[in-house]
């Protein structure tokens, strides 16, 4: 089961649940170790483009993130913008899409790049970039595993980005358990009532469900029924420094 796998990954990278700051580093390291790739990088993405590197597993991954940040082009930029995975099994023959990026990546020894967008519907938090020093596609099983890592990374970045430190939120409990339509509908409602982004609204829902020790789907139902209403001053709002 995917959800089980995503939860397993989060448990593995969150060795100390009260301190998540090293979790992204552990996630990219585990990613590079488990998947048939040379390395992995995790980046925040904004509407304007690359929003900064969160974690990298090796120097090449660091170089790739730096290149895309500087040039404003590359697979991760496209993956984030389109919301679709951008799979480039042979960078040298990727066409004229990213001329400067392709040259720079090749010089760093990278031959294949697989960029997976980190999103929950309309909430776009970043990209997981996988790279390899040999050409070739990702096998279906590897892609499935990579997508599970992307789901885990999405939860991680969403919480780290909106609640620095992520203190008190056992991510392994909330990951992937809220696929129900009600949760996404309630996210939309909360974002309007509390005047926050969809990402912040989702985190607020999860945080309150956790604080009240109840399933997030049940809380979402109460939001839909109007029994629970989040206001502008509710907790879980973004930290201005985030």
């Amino acid at each position: 089961m995917t959800r089980k796998r995503v939860a397993d990954i989060l448990v593995a990278v969150l060795s100390r649940p009260t301190d998540d700051t090293a979790a992204p580093d552990r996630l990219v390291a585990l990613c590079a170790q488990v998947l048939p790739v040379s390395g992995a990088g995790l980046a925040f993405m904004t509407d304007e483009g690359h929003g900064g590197t969160v974690a990298v597993s090796d120097a090449a991954a660091s170089g790739l993130e730096e290149l895309q940040f500087t040039l404003g082009e590359g697979p991760c930029v496209d993956a984030s913008r389109s919301g679709r995975p951008v799979l480039v099994p042979d960078l040298a023959h990727s066409g004229p899409r990213w001329p400067a990026f392709a040259d720079g990546a090749h010089a760093a020894g990278v031959r294949a790049v697989f960029a997976l967008p980190l999103r929950v519907g309309g909430i776009r938090v970043g990209v997981l970039d996988l790279h390899r020093d040999a050409v070739g596609e990702l096998a279906p099983e590897a892609l499935t595993e990579a997508l599970a890592f992307a789901d885990a990374a999405t939860t991680l970045l969403l919480h780290l980005g909106t609640r620095p430190g992520g203190a008190g939120l056992p991510l392994q409990d909330v990951a992937g358990l809220d696929e129900r339509a009600e949760v996404h509908q309630a996210t939309g409602i909360v974002s309007v009532h509390a005047e926050v982004s969809l990402g912040q609204a989702l985190v607020m829902l999860r945080a309150r469900a956790y604080a009240e020790q109840r399933p997030v789907g049940e809380l979402a139902q109460d939001v839909l029924n109007g029994k629970v209403r989040f206001g502008r001053d509710d907790d879980g709002r973004r930290d201005p420094s985030a």
Binding site: A186, G188, V190, S191, V192
Partner: peptide
Amino acid sequence: SEQLQTALHSRIVIEQAKGVLSAR
């Protein structure tokens, strides 16, 4: 996998939009 991944997110966007429109 790629198609379905994208489709699942499109589905979520629709659910989120329902909530936004409903509240507005």
